[in-house]
Design a protein around this nucleic acid. Structure first.
Lengths: 138, 138
DNA sequence: TGTTGACCTGGAGTGCACTCCAGGTTGTTG
DNA sequence: CAACAACCTGGAGTGCACTCCAGGTCAACA
């Protein structure tokens, strides 16, 4: 086994099994498969037994996916972005546009959250003279 | 018509119909009803014909609900918080605790979003020499 | 050699938060 | 008085993003 793909040299020592990948990225095995089936993650290598092997590039990309998902980009938009990537450098302007748009979306999310923080603080003033109940955990 | 509830004086001139409430708060009529059915919004007045009439207090509270929902508090947690409110001042410490906990959650969401912004900016550097595609809207 | 564990596939199921719908009432408007 | 808009109720349906499951393969270990 080992070195599952085209290359025979043991340079691929860092390929990760699905379980390792899930540990490394915090994305579950099922979700990794789901992302692959939705076209968000392509070209994942396979061991001779058919099992997936994730490269360090895959790790980086999944981290990007995680970040974009966590900031509200939908699976659909992500899929669109990935398809552009598959179609070579002519799609770069559109990809840049998507990132710029998403960037401003995240920026406004931050603004919204700051407003929410103010509102919560305002609400907390009603409890200024109250001692908070002990926290369940930690 | 007018002054629908118990009180005959026209002081209730500011009571809002469901449609007006939806316009004012940005929360749909259906969602307002849903919140009421879930116990997040209690004591909504009714006109003689059975139609809801929202007070300015309701407006304020729905704005709080919106804010807490938008920052990730679940319907379930919100319901719990509301029930505490119904049980008088002895629950104040717990209510304060909930708000404090949620506050720190929002704060860490902001931190996460800032990291995401950094990652997006980093990714955008790959497109430094590319002119972004024109934006579809505005 | 048998059983355990990690993985495979396609497809079904879940949870959340709405959102929509059918069927009905009321009050206004031309 | 007919038609329309706004609202009522209980309950069904939707969309998203997973998450779980049944049934099977393969490699390693006792």
């Amino acid at each position: 086994m080992a070195t599952p793909t085209t290359n025979e040299r043991p340079a691929e020592i860092s390929l990760l099994t699905p379980g390792q990948m899930a540990d490394r990225t915090g994305v579950s095995i099922d979700t990794l498969r789901y992302y692959e089936s939705e076209g968000l993650l392509t070209g994942v290598a396979r061991a001779t037994n058919g099992h997936r092997r994730y490269s360090s590039n895959d790790v980086l990309w999944v981290e990007v996916l995680r970040c974009l998902r966590a900031t509200g980009m939908s699976i659909d938009q992500l899929r669109h972005y990935c398809r552009l990537g598959d179609h070579g450098p002519t799609t770069k302007p559109e990809r840049k546009r998507i990132l710029l748009d998403h960037r401003s979306l995240v920026a406004s999310q931050i603004d919204e959250l700051r407003l929410a923080l103010d509102l919560i603080d305002h609400k907390l003033e009603q409890y200024a003279d109250i001692k908070a109940a002990p926290n369940g955990a930690a």
